[in-house]
Design a protein around this nucleic acid. Structure first.
Lengths: 141, 141
DNA sequence: TCATTATATAACGTTAACGTCAACGTAATT
DNA sequence: AATTACGTTGACGTTAACGTTATATAATGA
C-alpha cells in the first residue's frame, strides 16, 4: 500500500485511482496549464484537496463536451488576480454568460431525454402489437 | 443559389448551411454509417427531412460529449428491424439505461451550474470589498 | 450549349487528448 | 545489495473527427 499521510495531500497515483484517470492524463493537464501542483524537494508532485477539486471540475466539464481549452478559459478566468474593476466586471459577465449557456444546455438535455423516451415508447408499442399477433403466452407479469 | 425544390428534400450543402457544419462532416457521418441518404441516378446525395432530423440528433448528442460511436449505437439500436421479442426487450432495456444516464447527467449539469454560480458570487463579493477600499490596491485576502 | 458552380471519390494532412515505452532517480523492503 | 514500487522527463504512437487538396463528373442558369 502507498503513502497514507491523509492530511489532505495526495500523490499522483492516488488521485488517478480516485478519479479513475491515468497519471499520464493528470500530467498532461499540467502540461497544458490546467493544474500546477506543488513539488517536493526532488520533483515529486503533490496535490492538495483544492487541486483535486479542480481536477473534478475539469472532468465534469469534459463529460459535457467542453474541450480542455474551453475548460482552461473558464477556470483560469476565476483564478487570475484580476486587478482593476473593469476586468472584474468582465469576469462576472463571462460567468453570467456561461450560466446562461448551461441553462440552455439543461433544457436541451431534457428535450433529448424526452426524445429518447419517445423512441422507447414507440418501441414498446411495436412490441406489444407483435405480442398480440404472436398469440403466444409467456407471461412474466 | 442552389436548387430549391422545397418539397422536403435537401442537397448536402443546404443541410450543411442550415446545421452549420461542413459537407465533409456530413459525408463523414455517412462513411461511418450514421446516415444513408438516397442517391440520384448518378450519385448525388439527397436528404429527406427525416435525414435532417437524424443529423440534428447526432449534433445534439455531440454537444453533450458523446462520441460518434456511442451516438451510432444509440440510434441504430432503434433503427434496425429487431425481430424477436428477446431483441426487442434488450432494446428497451438499453433505452431505459440511457434515460437513467441522461437523468444523471441532468443532475450533474445542474450541480455544475450551481458551482459556477458560486464562483461568480464569490467574485462579486471580492469586487464589492475592493470597491469599499476604492483607490487603494494593496490588501490581499 | 457553354460557363459556372456544386458534388463525387480518393487520399493525405491535422489536431486534441491522451497511450505507451524508454531511461532514469529515489525510497522502502527484503 | 538487490528487488520492488513508484516517481520523473522526454519522445514517439494512436485514434477520432474532421480539414484540405486534387481530379473528375453532374447540375443549373444565361
Amino acid at each position: 500500500m502507498s503513502s497514507s499521510t491523509h492530511k489532505g495531500i495526495f500523490t499522483i497515483s492516488e488521485l488517478a485511482q480516485e478519479l479513475d484517470i491515468s497519471t499520464r492524463t493528470i500530467r498532461y493537464y499540467e502540461e497544458i496549464g490546467l493544474i500546477l501542483p506543488q513539488r517536493s524537494g526532488k520533483g515529486t508532485r503533490y496535490y492538495t484537496r483544492s487541486d483535486r477539486a479542480r481536477l473534478k471540475l475539469i472532468l465534469r466539464g469534459k463529460r459535457f463536451g467542453f474541450s480542455l481549452h474551453e475548460i482552461k478559459e473558464m477556470i483560469t478566468l476565476f483564478d487570475e488576480d484580476r486587478t482593476g474593476r473593469k476586468q472584474l466586471q468582465r469576469t462576472i459577465q463571462y460567468g453570467e454568460e456561461k450560466i446562461r449557456e448551461l441553462d440552455a444546455r439543461i433544457d436541451e438535455l431534457i428535450r433529448l431525454r424526452e426524445e429518447i423516451l419517445e423512441f422507447k415508447t414507440r418501441f414498446e408499442e411495436k412490441m406489444a402489437s407483435l405480442e398480440a399477433v404472436e398469440g403466444n403466452r409467456e407471461s412474466k407479469e
